[in-house]
Design a protein around this nucleic acid. Structure first.
Lengths: 237, 237
DNA sequence: GCAAGGTATATTGTATACAATTATACGAGG
DNA sequence: CCTCGTATAATTGTATACAATATACCTTGC
């Protein structure tokens, strides 16, 4: 929750556990492992050429990140993400991204400001060309810059968690419609508010940016992907 | 992050790992293990009468909860919590407790409403008697009820994390001053707003409740406990 | 035929053995 | 006397062996 010094992050890419953790996270977020799929320790271990020990430890971390659910003595299952979850996340993110933008207005560094401007410029370029992959990546990066700029390790970490969590859903919707342009326009407005030192405006714009992103997602088939129900929690098994 | 069904929570109190996890968390939050203290796997294991395996797994979870920091090939250290961290947490909580109160206004059940009223009534009683321990417990419970009532597993979990995280600090300040009465009065106002169905008011009151709690904490020696600096991050070692 | 119970099997939980890495202590050389 | 390097000890990282638990299938009795 705090002190996430990259150098010493326990998810280090040099230990087997760290590698297993990152690999599994990537595979879950990318959809290689479907919802409710059972992850077996030996199978994963054999696939990656390691023993059960690092796999088990990676499982424990994935569980606290919310990506899998561990039922004692039974197994580990990829967690489902309900439409209600997505809605909740965007409500929370709306507030916290607003706070983040407000803080960033005071704290952003020259380098971060420049990268943000460059990000928006590049996104415009790729938008014209229809490079959806790059657009998605720049979109992610924009938010990352904002998180870094707020100068709060805690807020940064929290927002990163939520952001990563909805990637599973977002990847399916951003590339399939015209949200890319509108999204980048909103990014520009946020950037300009920060640049002008208007913290209040930056906060409001960031709030609205999340609401718009969610509304767009709903319009573009969120329900079809994750079921009609917006209130039901997934079944235990 | 989602689907925290008590029955199947991996921090189950029946497995050794779960017991180790809960014991260590409690000991860290209660201050038995000081900041930056190194936790050794064998020592903990011997103390609890288990092998290193469940201890290590518990460590991995504690790390993702932010209570310890694991440096690869070196050791596990109790994380420090800086004054800046506390400030950030209260900023975040102010927004999210507000959101929580707003949602709870729509979703709270009859039973939850009754427990909330009872909580406030009891807190008044113990306030008169000067029962500081009970007051602190009721204060915690009030927020827990609110978290449960918002009907969002995600928000509930997020707020619980932050709440637990600042307990280390709060325990040192709540009992030593007259904040108890004011705090409970604010709880009552929040409760009444929810009962009256005024979501906007409930949100505002919950926002302010957190700000007041933080201000009071600063006034009552937060700096003395956690150092004058509000911006410095702790040293690596 | 069907249900209840038990046994076999698969899977997770825990302990321990071994490997790799890091910290420490001590001595040689300057 | 200080510094550097090496040897040794301590600690974590990983693999494997064993125990406990859950599941599925088969047997058995009705």
């Amino acid at each position: 929750m705090t002190n996430y010094d990259k150098k010493y992050d326990a998810n280090d890419k040099y230990s087997l556990r760290g590698r297993v953790f990152q690999k599994l996270r990537e595979d879950i977020l990318s959809g290689k492992y479907k919802e409710h799929e059972e992850l077996k320790e030996v199978a994963i271990g054999e696939e990656l050429g390691v023993s059960r020990t690092p796999v088990r430890e990676a499982f424990r971390q994935l569980e606290l990140e919310g990506l899998i659910r561990i039922v004692p003595n039974k197994g580990a299952y990829v967690t489902g993400i309900t439409a209600k979850d997505v809605k909740d996340i965007y409500m929370i993110r709306s507030l916290l991204e607003g706070l983040c933008a407000r803080l960033a207005t005071e704290k952003i560094s020259k380098e971060q400001m420049e990268e943000m401007e460059e990000n928006i410029y590049l996104a415009d370029f790729h938008e014209e060309k229809g490079h959806f992959d790059q657009i998605a990546e720049l979109d992610n990066r924009f938010h990352d810059i904002l998180y870094e700029a707020c100068d709060s390790k805690l807020l940064e970490h929290t927002l990163r968690d939520f952001h990563r969590y909805v990637l599973r859903v977002r990847q399916k919707t951003l590339a399939t419609n015209t949200r890319g342009r509108a999204s980048n326009d909103e990014h520009r407005q946020i950037m300009e508010a920060i640049k002008a030192g208007d913290a209040e405006l930056a906060e409001k714009l960031a709030n609205q940016h999340m609401i718009n992103a969610y509304d767009n997602m709903v319009k573009n088939g969120l329900k079809e992907i994750y079921g009609e129900s917006t209130g039901e929690t997934e079944k235990a098994e």
